[in-house]
Design a protein around this nucleic acid. Structure first.
Lengths: 351, 351
DNA sequence: CTGAAAGCGCTTACAG
DNA sequence: CTGAAAGCGCTTACAG
């Protein structure tokens, strides 16, 4: 119950050795007489001794804690990312503390203070709104940091993203090859490199094919905005016959408007392509053609980069782009000869 | 860059006071000469001093850290819960460390060790599979603990749940009042009190109305299982005309099978009611009648209970049930005279 | 109101 | 291989 935690001193006394010897047994820093070591371990187990990481931190200056800063977890993609990041980092001996950043300046300040006070050894910034200010404040702190799934112009910070430009281009080329000529893009947000790059890929593919976009509008990655925009597009004189949507979350809303409100058939009347391959994308209800974000590889790269920076604080920042395939499902018309991707669950994200 | 962190000693030197005085300024434990305090604050700001929480922890025995143990975050409900719990606890001066528990025994052991090593001041167990063993190990540790959204027979642990029995009963009564007689329940899991209580509510309502359930099968809260079960039910000789499904996540899959595979109309041919009021429940695509889990109130109760236990370790455990209303949408037939709930987003969970 | 002192539980040179 | 000693950065009685 409320009994005080067992310390290395307690174990030492019970095992008849000195306290530093107990410490050594749990550190493998220096060799310890095997027999004594065994005795210490036995006593420790019996007493329920677990080394106090707080004390260890104070001495070493390493807290073995990583801070992950998130904007929100409504989007299942980030939840899944958090879980996997957490597992990857736990595997390296780190625990993960979460911080939720709104987009107000005071909040950003408070979070940086918290990260510093908590003595985290490293920081992962995952898709936050006010990344720019937060990133620069974090950089000033000197704590190793990696941007996950969130580009940034600042060349002094490491980051891991999908190949958003390539993905945007490939999705658009697919629509063009299928014979679409009246293509619109419902884009992300000009402050988020993710969305910007997808849009650039879209525009590049259109230009190569000498096509003029029917529209190309920022929807802030918000479902409701994308839905309104869809209504507007189809109320106009020259509605599109294909939509490339900057993420799946918005694409689900777009499909809803097309089918339920406008009575259009997908893909007969309109083709739709999303981005992410979110868990729901392969639900029959949506059956969404989309560009997969290779989450697991992004996670691994992020953890690796961060560990590298923690080990060598002078390490130059690195940018890693991970390309993801186009997953062909039923929401977009197929180019001649093209077949749908192999069936099965969205392998990377869902089980 | 790699420069050592500023300590209270540095501030003391620069401000011409003793180190304990600096400490006092940041603790308000003892009064400090206002003029000196101001000088200390100024110097601290200038040097970028932030008190080292690790050192404070070591002394006080409080880490000001809460551990939240989760099973997975694919389900947006838990992501949202995590974010809100985190905010609530941050507001009380605690940071939140996350631990993901699989259901293997070694994992459970490892997590308890991590929680102890990290010196968390309190633990929230949120919907884990192996709750039983984890709970008992956590209890033995003596660290204050609250079960969130996860019942447990163990009467020695505090917990916060929705009124699952009431909710299950109310949903079922609604179906009966609408004239349904051939009602089936796709249940959760007999190891999870949440699901068990919803099922008990279902059975109670059926018995009161002297109705025999068409079926009442555990689906483990898994979408795929619920979908298979639905196919089986409707392949049988006497298919149901109404389904009460133990959570929304499964209900979405059930709707998909009914409409896309079986070509049935909802609610004309079959009524469906879910549980949770997940963010997607109010999407036109689903338009799901469901029992709302009052997330925000559950969060607040959880944080409050945990804070109470931390302040008074001898406090007897408390069980809090929070009732949630039935949100009437389009997926279930209406009883005569009944109207749909006011429109608008699922206010509690989504923005 | 304030400084010198002790201590939180570890780790790590330092002698032996 | 191992014990006595110092120290990580704080907080908190203890004198003054």
């Amino acid at each position: 119950m409320g009994s005080a935690r067992v310390t290395s001193r307690d174990v030492a006394k019970a095992a008849g050795v000195s306290q530093p010897t107990v410490s050594r047994v749990f550190n493998s820093s220096t060799a310890v007489d095997p027999e004594k070591a065994a005795r210490v371990r036995a006593v420790a187990r019996e007493l329920g001794y677990i080394p106090n990481l707080v004390a260890r931190s104070l001495h070493s200056g390493n807290s073995f804690r990583i801070g992950i800063v998130l904007a929100y977890l409504k989007n299942g993609f980030f939840g899944e990312a958090l879980q996997r990041l957490s597992k990857a980092l736990n595997g390296q001996g780190y625990s993960v503390t979460v911080y939720f950043a709104g987009n107000r300046t005071e909040e950003v300040d408070a979070i940086v203070d918290d990260l510093l006070a908590d003595q985290v050894d490293g920081i992962i910034l995952a898709s936050i709104s006010m990344a720019n200010e937060l990133v620069s404040r974090v950089r000033k702190s000197g704590i190793p940091c990696v941007l996950f799934n969130r580009g940034q112009c600042d060349p002094a910070t490491s980051m891991v993203t999908a190949s958003n430009f390539e993905g945007g281009r490939r999705a658009t080329e697919f629509l063009i090859k299928a014979g679409h000529r009246r293509i619109a893009h419902l884009a992300g947000w000009r402050e988020a490199l993710n969305g910007v790059d997808r849009k650039r890929g879209f525009l590049a593919a259109m230009e190569e094919a000498s096509l003029e976009p029917v529209a190309c509008t920022d929807c802030h990655f918000r479902r409701n905005v994308a839905m309104s925009e869809t209504r507007l597009l189809f109320a106009g004189a020259t509605p599109p016959d294909a939509l490339f949507v900057a993420n799946d979350h918005m694409a689900f809303g777009v499909l809803e408007v097309l089918r339920e409100e406008l009575g259009l058939r997908v893909p007969d009347d309109v083709s739709v392509i999303g981005y992410d391959d979110a868990p729901m994308a392969n639900w029959k209800t949506f059956d969404l053609t989309t560009v997969r974000q290779p989450l697991q590889r992004m996670i691994e790269a992020t953890a690796r980069l961060l560990m590298n920076e923690i080990q060598d604080n002078e390490r130059p920042p690195e940018k890693i782009e991970i390309s993801g395939e186009l997953i062909v499902r039923g929401s977009a018309r197929l180019p001649k000869g093209q077949r749908r991707s192999a069936q099965g669950p969205s392998a990377d994200i869902q089980d």
